[in-house]
Design a protein around this nucleic acid. Structure first.
Length: 447
RNA sequence: UGUCCUAUGGUGUAAUGGUAACACUGCAGAUUUUGAUUCUGCCUUUCUAGGUUCGAAUCCUAGUAGGACAACCA
């Protein structure tokens, strides 16, 4: 039985929802926008969303939030899918917000019919100006009073492509004086005569995030819609849409995103690094993208362990990148086959080892893993050591090779005898040693 | 001069009204046929002030600090 760690706040909520019978089973989703590659921050979200249904049962969908055709591309869809798989997770269904464009459109019509949405001809500047500020209430404009019939006609015409980009938007009719800026008649549909990576040119109006995400969750009957803290103010609008549309009540929960020392975790900035060619691509090993760290040698196990250790909470955090490195070292230590290498060699001659003789010794491949087997290594009276491992004048606590000092060599022999090598008085140019006891000696390296 | 979220060692995360703990980092030591691993020890913690309570990290109020919110982005 594994050590039972304490629950994070989301697990507590779910635990409770299951116990009280609010849900029989849970549904989560991982909702990336296909406008960039996944990074370590996404890994946290993936591990969270998928981890929850691994733990509690239920299912996690992969849903692409593709409501903005300008920035989204199929290349990103493919990379995201492969990165999620690489991390070790399998989604139940592969879904797209764009799959729901028709339903979303009908939802908008429903809102209009309920007198809860209107077409606004204002420019974005005007809309921004009318919105007020966090401390100053916004103001109503004349378009707000359009009749349901007029709104219906206009919206239909918007869909039909009668108007150019930016000339009209559909807005939810809520409250221009609301304390929450997002509730001040948010734009829910805009005109974009743009090619969509999936729907092609079928649409020229596209829903905004706030009119697509919650509805998509609802359509999929997502029980726990988990997102990052910056969406906290959106929750009120999320709930409003679901309530007014009278659809399945998915619930949104927010957690703090991952921040890491010395690490840029903004998709926008990472994109900039790529487009301005400061890096060789999204998978440049210096990038914190999953494809980047993968190329760098990170393993999915290490990243999952990392996500497990950093926890999930609601306070802003800054994780020391050293923790990620620790997780990787920890995993590598368990799985890595050992090899010895000398990068800057100096030759050592063992003067009392029979000239011309050589023998084969064996060494285990990984002391942490008994199943990893062993390898054979040749050994003779000439070997090479790292230049840094020799000091003519040894420092305090030095246990490298130095004149007159003894060192042990790593080797696997059948003998349990101590294996000692004694340096004779020597210089770098004239580096010799002799076997000090009746021993077998292993090579320090092979070159 | 608004609303919302948050506040526990250096960094994270627990403790769910009843002895503040675990990991990472750092420092010291032991072991070591990888200066690795492993092991041991140490350093360091409840933002402030009130209140409720036998008892508060936990509940309440106020303050302070940090963050979010005024994209036809997500």
């Amino acid at each position: 039985m594994a050590e039972e760690r304490s629950l994070n706040f989301l697990e507590e909520i779910i635990d409770n929802d299951l116990k009280t019978g609010k849900y029989q089973t849970i549904v989560t989703r991982f909702p990336p926008e296909p406008n960039g590659y996944l990074h370590l921050g996404h890994a946290k979200s993936i591990c969270l969303n998928f981890g929850l249904t691994v733990r509690y049962g239920g299912k996690t969908n992969l849903r692409f939030d593709d409501t903005n055709p300008i920035t989204e591309e199929t290349e990103y869809v493919e990379s995201i899918k492969s990165d999620v798989r690489w991390l070790g997770f399998n989604w139940s269904e592969e879904l797209y917000a764009s799959d729901y464009f028709s339903q979303l459109y009908e939802f908008a019509v429903k809102l209009i019919n309920k007198g809860l949405a209107y077409v606004d001809d204002s420019t974005s500047e005007e809309i921004a100006a009318q919105k007020g500020t966090p401390t100053v209430p916004g103001t109503n404009n004349t378009f707000r009073n359009r009749s349901i019939e007029e709104n219906l006609n206009l919206f239909t015409e918007m869909k039909a492509g009668k108007y150019p980009d930016g000339s009209k938007v559909l807005r939810a009719k809520i409250d221009m004086a609301h304390l929450n800026m997002l509730m001040r008649d948010p734009v829910i549909y805009r005109i974009k005569h743009a090619h969509h990576h999936r729907t092609g040119d079928a649409w020229c109006i596209y829903p905004m995030y706030d009119f697509a995400h919650g509805q998509s969750d609802s359509i999929e009957q997502v029980t726990h819609s988990i997102c990052t803290l910056e969406f906290v103010p959106h929750r009120e609008l999320y709930d409003w849409c679901i309530e007014k549309l009278e659809i399945y009540p998915s619930k949104q929960y927010e957690f703090a995103r991952l921040n890491m020392t010395y690490t840029m975790m903004s998709k926008r900035k990472l994109l900039q690094l790529v487009t301005e060619k400061h890096v060789t691509g999204w998978d440049d090993p210096r990038m914190p993208t999953l494809s980047g760290v993968r190329r760098r040698g990170y393993t999915p196990e290490a990243i999952r362990d990392f996500c497990d250790r950093i926890g999930v909470a609601k306070r802003e955090n800054l994780i020391d990148i050293g923790l990620l490195e620790f997780c990787q070292r920890d995993h590598l230590n368990k799985i890595t086959t050992r090899r010895m290498v000398v990068t800057d060699p100096i030759k050592v001659v063992i003067t009392n080892y029979p000239e011309g003789k050589s023998e084969i010794l064996t060494s285990e491949n990984n002391p942490e893993d008994p199943d990893s087997g062993a390898r054979e290594m040749p050994f003779s009276g000439e070997l090479y050591i790292e230049r840094d491992d020799f000091m003519e004048v040894p420092a305090k606590k030095n246990f490298r090779l130095a004149p007159g000092q003894m060192v042990r060599l790593k080797v696997r022999t059948l003998l349990s005898a101590k294996i000692l090598l004694r340096m004779l008085p020597a210089t770098l140019r004239n580096c010799v040693a002799r076997i000090f006891q009746k021993v077998k000696v292993a090579p320090i390296l092979q070159v």
